[in-house]
Amino acid sequence: MRLSVLDQSPMSLGGTAHQALEETARLAQWVERLGYTRFWVSEHHDTRSLAGSSPEVLLAHLGARTERIRIGSGGVMLPHYSAYKVAENFRLLEALYPRRIDLGLGRAPGGMPRSTMALREGRPREPDYLQQVQDVMYYLTDTLPEDHRFRGLTATPVTDTVPEVWLLGSSDWSAHAAAHLGTAFMFAQFINGDGGVEAVHAYRERFRPSSLWPEPVAGVAVFCVCADADAEAERIASSLDLSLLMLANGQPTAGTPTIEMALNYPYSKYERAVVLENRKRMVVGGPESVKQQLEALAKAYGVDEVMLTTRTERFEDRLRSFELVAQVFGLTG
């Protein structure tokens, strides 16, 4: 089973964006040495707790800080942008780091309505997402149809290799879109703990081959906290429990809550139910427990790649979590 990483550049309370982004770069180097397959970074807007707002810029930096691991976006929120410009951004990255670039695309806003309005300022209507994705694929492969509105246009620089194109989603709609367009598909279980298995199965059943993907390729992304023992993992994961609860309650935060805050938080009966429900989005435990959970997850989805995203109060716990998972699965860098 292949293991990969999605990093959201989380900020700890009292930390800075510079620190969070430097930790992302260090983490990319760390998981490359451990033998992980790919390293993706996310796009979030108008938030004080996550530092990654521009995947393309961060990927240019990460490519220079790493040597072999595939790097990509998880993902670019395409409705905010021009398909042509996104294609050029990722062709430039592909020219810099050939055969290492993944273009993960999503249609979520990545922020609250105010940031969406600002990002789309001046655009008269909601874009056709499916057409946008199709256009990106045309630009990346120089296959614009003769009847296309921009026929003859080239996304530069022209490259000999093409980034992998993935659709990211947390619903069956995204799965059907990926199948219809012929892209790879990553289900975001760390966003939605229900319906993922059915969505991936539907993706496979409906898949139509494309010039980029002759066969369906799918994976699942999940929160993961691994520590030397189950009890320690539960203690570390308590800060993620509280972070997700605060997000659900609309409580603004300047960073990942501390473990102490989480352990002392006066959860109501309803909030404890929310925390329990959120655990569907997470894998937590010691190495053997995590291994069993991830293998069961991959089997249920019928995939051979699982992407892990880990958000902890302390960066050292994040590093250790990925190290323990790599060890128990026998990854080799």
Results as ranks from 00 to 15, higher is better:
residue 154 T to F: 11
residue 321 S to Q: 01
residue 327 Q to R: 14
residue 195 G to E: 03
residue 256 T to V: 15
residue 39 F to T: 08
residue 224 C to W: 01
residue 3 L to S: 07
residue 17 A to K: 13
residue 247 L to D: 12
residue 234 E to G: 02
residue 284 V to I: 15
residue 209 P to G: 03
residue 185 F to I: 12
residue 235 R to E: 04
residue 315 F to M: 05
residue 166 W to E: 12
residue 223 F to W: 12
residue 192 N to V: 05
residue 327 Q to D: 15
residue 22 E to S: 15
residue 264 N to Q: 15
residue 280 K to E: 05
residue 72 G to E: 04
residue 186 M to Y: 00
residue 235 R to M: 03
residue 196 G to T: 01
residue 15 G to D: 15
residue 254 A to V: 09
residue 290 V to R: 09
residue 21 L to P: 07
residue 86 V to I: 03
residue 285 G to S: 13
residue 46 D to L: 11
residue 235 R to H: 00
residue 281 R to P: 13
residue 208 R to K: 08
residue 68 R to A: 12
residue 109 P to N: 03
residue 253 T to Y: 05
residue 289 S to N: 13
residue 71 I to H: 08
residue 134 Q to A: 15
residue 289 S to G: 09
residue 53 S to G: 09
residue 261 M to Q: 15
residue 219 G to I: 01
residue 243 S to A: 15
residue 102 D to I: 04
residue 308 L to A: 01
residue 148 H to T: 01
residue 326 A to C: 02
residue 90 F to K: 00
residue 283 V to C: 12
residue 79 P to H: 02
residue 297 L to K: 02
residue 49 S to P: 00
residue 67 E to F: 00
residue 284 V to A: 11
residue 114 R to S: 15
residue 48 R to S: 11
residue 219 G to K: 04
residue 322 F to M: 08
residue 114 R to G: 12
residue 319 L to Q: 05
residue 262 A to E: 05
residue 8 Q to I: 14
